[in-house]
Computed example of a mutant assay.
Amino acid sequence: MAYCAPHGIPYSVLMGRVVGPGEPEWTEEDTALAVEWQRMQDATCSGCGQQLHESLTDDGGYETEIVRCHGCKAKEKRAEDLGKTKSDTAGVRIVVRHLPEEN
């Protein structure tokens, strides 16, 4: 659905269903999948990827880890060589994890 929904493509069509004459392009299942995908997107923070119902109310239950994407590092290094950027954080990404509640 991450590809289908933003492009307006029914999931069943992406998976090979051929829409015949007089048949609806979107099946009930396609519509349900798209609505559920959008619901999940709306419930997720676009910044950290955490569930909003938790992240908007819980201020201490998270841990972060710094990781480095070596592909992005190489790309940014190349741009730096071309004089386009100067960064000591090339390829750095911060992963956020919600910690389980302690009982």
Rank of each mutant, 00 (worst) to 15 (best):
H7G: 00
E102D: 14
K84Q: 10
W37G: 02
P6Y: 06
D30L: 06
C69G: 05
E28I: 08
C4L: 06
K84S: 06
Y62P: 00
I94C: 07
A5R: 12
G49S: 03
T44L: 01
D81M: 10
E36F: 07
A43P: 03
E80I: 02
G16Q: 04
M40P: 03
G22M: 11
E28T: 14
Q38N: 11
A34I: 06
S87C: 12
A2S: 12
Q51M: 11
V18T: 13
E102R: 15
S55F: 02
Y3S: 09
E36H: 08
D88K: 15
R68W: 05
R17N: 01
N103Q: 10
V13W: 01
A90G: 08
A2R: 15
P6H: 06
L33W: 09
P100Y: 07
S55E: 08
A79P: 03
V19H: 03
D59P: 08
M1T: 15
L82P: 03
G20Q: 13
S55G: 01
M1E: 09
L52S: 01
C72Q: 12
P10D: 07
E80H: 04
T27Q: 05
E25V: 10
R17E: 02
V92P: 00
G20N: 03
C45H: 00
G16N: 01
T89K: 14
H98L: 06
G22V: 06
A5F: 11
